[in-house]
Amino acid sequence: MTVTIYHNPDCGTSRNTLGLIRNAGIEPVIIEYLKHPPDEATLVDLIAKAGLTIPAAVREKGSPYRELGLDSPSIGNQELLEAMLAHPILINRPFVVTPLGVRLCRPSELVLDILPQPQQAAFTKEDGERVIDEQGRRIQHG
């Protein structure tokens, strides 16, 4: 059983997602996608299997999205894809691949839907939000 995370260690959501994977007793394959970006076929496959459109997989905040003119209504999917490949910081994160599916884990708790093993202990995100209780159950907020 392989679990893969397309990870950015500078991103809190990505770190929390990795923490939840490890809290299930799984040591994933970690791909630091800014250093080792996916090729076009892999990126298209991740986006499709996650049930997203290409525009939904583009990271706008903290990226050169506007500077590159990608917010123009005339920009098509292929141009967005090419920009993501040229500037991996534009790829939203973290994508996680498990035997149960692919998700863009924003928020990080979305990874719980595709982990093949249950949480083993309590888990608190970096911002202090408790998401898993002492019995390994997801805490429902709101």
Rank of each mutant, 00 (worst) to 15 (best):
I5D: 15
V96M: 06
H7C: 10
L104V: 11
A50G: 14
N8Y: 07
T124L: 13
A122N: 08
I75N: 10
V97W: 03
Q78V: 03
R66D: 07
I31Y: 03
V131S: 11
Y33D: 15
F95E: 10
L20E: 06
R59E: 02
I139D: 07
E27K: 09
P9Q: 02
G51P: 00
D45S: 14
A57D: 12
G62A: 06
N8M: 05
V58N: 00
V111M: 06
A24N: 03
P28M: 09
V58S: 02
G62V: 10
T13C: 10
A57M: 00
I89C: 07
Q135H: 12
S108P: 03
Q140M: 10
P64H: 01
L112K: 01
L70S: 05
T4V: 15
N77T: 12
P64D: 10
L80N: 08
G51K: 01
G51Y: 02
L43N: 09
I26P: 07
E40A: 12
H36K: 11
L81M: 11
R59I: 00
G76K: 10
D133C: 07
R93Y: 12
H87F: 09
E32L: 12
C11F: 02
M84P: 04
S108K: 05
H7M: 12
T53V: 04
P38E: 14
A50N: 06
R138T: 06
Y6V: 10
D113G: 09
T4Y: 07
R137Y: 14
A122I: 02
C105Q: 05
P99Y: 04
I114G: 03
E134R: 11
L46I: 13
I139L: 13
P88C: 11
N23D: 10
C105Y: 13
I31G: 01
R106Q: 02
A41F: 05
A122F: 05
G19P: 15
T124Q: 15
H141F: 04
L115A: 10
G136K: 05
I31F: 00
I30D: 09
E60P: 11
R15N: 08
G128P: 08
D10V: 05
P64W: 03
P99I: 09
N77K: 11
R22V: 13
A83M: 02
P73I: 14
S74Y: 04
L18W: 12
L68E: 15
K49A: 12
G19D: 01
N77F: 04
R138E: 11
V97M: 03
C11Q: 04
A121Y: 01
D45E: 08
L81D: 13
I139K: 02
L18Y: 04
P37N: 14
I47W: 08
G142H: 01
V96L: 01
